[in-house]
Amino acid sequence: MSLPGGDARAELVRCYRWLRQHGLNDSHSGNASVRDGDCAWVTPTGCCGDTLQPEQLLRCPLDAAPPAGASLDAPLHLAVYAASPAARAVLHSHGPHSIAMTLGGGDFRPQDFEGRYYFPEVPVLDIPHEAYVARSPAAVAAALASHRVCIVRGHGVYAAAETLDLAYKWTCSLESSARIAWLARVARLGG
């Protein structure tokens, strides 16, 4: 995915809007970042996926604390970039099927062909709500250092990749696999 002039901020906003438009985030959930040289552009806290503009993104140096107003997950994004030097994009979404499939315990193992091809196993992290801010950066960064995606149980999906396009692909593919697993579960219960 590349826009004229290679504007990383415009690409990030476009991808963040797609997450909202395709039901992977509600109007104000999730967050996203893209690495751009010695910094990352990060969505602001509480931003709206429908109206976010490139100039609203916050510049976060890779080796410093995020500025005021950056997403609550900005330290997590920076930790992922530190743990995975090849990563150029991190997306956090709230796909309903992906989250639902984590509520029963254990890691998520897709049942469909594409899901098994991309994600033989998706780590599901147990991070207590009250410890999320303190523990999520290290836990998610460690999981994404060896997996394309991970899920914080009951909370949401994190994807890291070399491009925004790939991070978006992993996010969408995981939600598709989770939807298929959910439908298969419902079919077994109803049949």
Results as ranks from 00 to 15, higher is better:
38 D>E: 15
44 P>S: 09
45 T>G: 12
132 Y>T: 12
68 A>L: 10
138 A>H: 13
36 D>G: 04
101 M>A: 11
124 V>K: 13
162 E>N: 07
40 A>Q: 08
130 E>C: 07
85 P>D: 07
107 D>M: 10
54 P>L: 11
28 H>L: 11
121 E>V: 15
114 E>W: 09
68 A>H: 11
113 F>H: 12
133 V>S: 12
58 L>F: 01
74 A>M: 07
90 V>G: 10
61 P>T: 05
144 L>Q: 05
105 G>W: 08
138 A>N: 08
73 D>Q: 05
73 D>L: 06
82 A>S: 12
28 H>M: 15
161 A>E: 09
116 R>G: 15
84 S>L: 15
131 A>I: 00
93 S>T: 15
56 Q>S: 13
134 A>L: 11
76 L>P: 00
46 G>V: 10
33 S>M: 08
88 R>G: 11
134 A>I: 01
84 S>W: 15
142 A>Q: 12
60 C>W: 02
72 L>S: 02
42 V>C: 14
115 G>E: 04
86 A>P: 14
56 Q>E: 15
95 G>W: 01
36 D>Q: 14
144 L>H: 08
112 D>L: 09
38 D>K: 07
74 A>W: 01
135 R>C: 07
96 P>Y: 04
32 A>F: 00
160 A>R: 15
101 M>F: 00
115 G>A: 13
46 G>P: 04
57 L>S: 05
165 D>Y: 03
64 A>N: 01
129 H>W: 14
125 L>C: 12
63 D>K: 10
76 L>C: 09
140 V>R: 02
63 D>T: 03
144 L>S: 06
144 L>K: 06
166 L>H: 07
155 H>R: 09
126 D>T: 13
127 I>Y: 12
91 L>D: 04
34 V>K: 03
155 H>Q: 13
127 I>C: 05
45 T>E: 12
25 N>Q: 07
61 P>Y: 03
66 P>W: 09
143 A>S: 12
163 T>I: 06
70 A>N: 00
69 G>T: 01
93 S>E: 05
132 Y>R: 10
84 S>Q: 13
158 Y>P: 02
99 I>Q: 01
154 G>W: 04
62 L>H: 00
138 A>L: 06
87 A>E: 09
56 Q>M: 14
38 D>W: 03
98 S>P: 01
80 V>T: 07
36 D>P: 03
74 A>E: 03
70 A>P: 00
141 A>H: 07
43 T>E: 06
75 P>N: 02
41 W>E: 04
61 P>I: 05
156 G>I: 02
39 C>M: 11
111 Q>P: 00
159 A>T: 13
109 R>P: 00
102 T>M: 05
60 C>R: 06
107 D>R: 07
43 T>R: 05
56 Q>G: 01
27 S>P: 00
62 L>Q: 02
142 A>D: 09
55 E>C: 11
122 V>G: 12
23 G>H: 11
124 V>W: 08
136 S>N: 05
67 P>W: 05
162 E>W: 03
30 G>Q: 04
134 A>H: 10
62 L>Y: 03
77 H>Q: 06
115 G>V: 14
